[in-house]
């Protein structure tokens, strides 16, 4: 599995459009921060507010970019088949693809943290340790939440052997559209009494971040997110296990 992961990350490092998109997103973020710094009241609080808002926006963009990068070329070239033919177990293929997405997303987010903080420093802002910790918490919370989105969408990816519909579902998940639809169901009397609000992936992610920022670990939300990741992996593995793969 590690060989497949290493090979995939190596080939993704050669994908120029992906790199250009990531750089462009960060240039836009830097420009937004610099423009925001032109008012008199610019300080580290305003800066962090802008950075964190921008951060959650760009993560959606990164999620989509990396999803396409990891899967679209692979399905076109059918290299997954070669990996299986060369002895990679199918469940390891799923795990590798999920890890691909997570490693790339984490790398992109780290890059944005660095770009954001450097841009802030250029505008004369000095962030303190507490603010850095807020950024780290957002980083972790969003990463785990995105891991859940990826894992759920992989059920469709490996079952359908295509990218388009799973990509749409990923977008609906990451912009919170599916969460809004599901949350609206919780207002139905018959369902309301079960208090399921905290069990959606998006709500669990938000709760995990907001509680951690005030210093308490929301263990339940963390477990909910990890359960979503596990469910996605198990269901994908079961569906992919006997899937006929075409050359």
């Amino acid at each position: 599995m590690m060989r497949y992961l290493k090979a995939d990350l190596w080939r993704l490092s050669k994908r120029i459009p992906r790199i250009i998109t990531i750089i462009l997103i960060n240039i836009i973020l830097a420009v937004v921060i610099i423009k925001g710094s032109q008012g008199d009241s610019w300080n580290s609080v305003f800066f962090m507010d802008k950075l964190l808002k921008g951060f959650s926006m760009v993560i959606m963009g990164y999620g989509i970019v990396e999803f396409i990068s990891v899967f679209s070329d692979d399905f076109r070239a059918k290299t997954m088949q070669v990996a299986i033919g060369a002895g990679t177990k199918r469940r390891h293929v799923i795990l590798t693809k999920w890890t691909d997405c997570m490693v790339l997303l984490a790398g992109d987010m780290l890059f944005t943290c660095i770009v954001g903080l450097l841009t802030g420093a250029m505008t004369g802002v000095h962030v303190n340790g507490e603010q850095i910790m807020d950024l780290v918490i957002n980083f972790l919370g969003n990463l785990i939440q995105s891991g859940g989105y990826y894992s759920l969408v992989m059920i469709l990816v490996f079952h359908m052997q295509s990218v388009m519909i799973p990509l749409l579902v990923y977008m609906f998940l990451s912009i919170g559209l599916l969460n809004s639809v599901i949350s609206s169901l919780f207002y139905i009397d018959a369902i309301q009494k079960f208090h399921l609000e905290s069990f959606t992936l998006t709500n669990a992610g938000q709760s995990f971040i907001s509680r951690l920022i005030v210093g308490s670990l929301d263990f339940k939300s963390l477990i909910v997110m990890l359960v979503y990741i596990a469910i996605g992996y198990v269901v994908s593995s079961l569906l992919f296990k006997k899937k006929e793969l075409e050359f």
Partner: peptide, 8 residues
């Protein structure tokens, strides 16, 4: 078995 390469 088939041609399985990345075009880029």
């Amino acid at each position: 078995v088939g041609i399985n390469f990345f075009s880029y």
